[in-house]
């Protein structure tokens, strides 16, 4: 019977609710911009990781390496694009 119970999914769901609640503190409590952004960055990226590994089974198949390489590469370039753009057009303009 234990095999039937979707433990991974339930835990992932609970965890993402908790993280959402944690993120909400930046709205309900009076935090500074820096602290707020830190909280949001942490909760968002952890939640994304939970979805990726827990729900999307990113690491289960023989193509694990290709899949992770693809995701990491995408995220790295995405971050470069976002922060590079901000550097050029906002922070250093």
């Amino acid at each position: 019977m234990s095999e039937l119970f979707p433990r991974k999914q339930v835990m992932g769901f609970v965890f993402s609710l908790v993280l959402t609640a944690a993120a909400l503190t930046v709205y309900f409590l009076d935090v500074s911009f820096a602290v707020g952004m830190t909280i949001l960055l942490a909760t968002a990226f952890i939640q994304a990781a939970v979805q990726l590994v827990g729900f999307m089974h990113a690491g289960e198949s023989e193509d694990k390496v290709a899949i992770y390489a693809n995701i990491y590469y995408g995220i790295a370039i995405a971050l470069v694009t976002i922060f590079g753009t901000l550097l050029i057009l906002v922070w250093d303009m």
Partner: peptide, 21 residues
């Protein structure tokens, strides 16, 4: 392949962003 995503500003050095960029 990776560096090609890190150089794009060289097409508009004269656009007005600062010397750091």
């Amino acid at each position: 392949s990776f560096f090609s995503f890190l150089v794009w500003t060289h097409h508009f050095y004269t656009m007005g962003q600062g010397p750091l960029t």
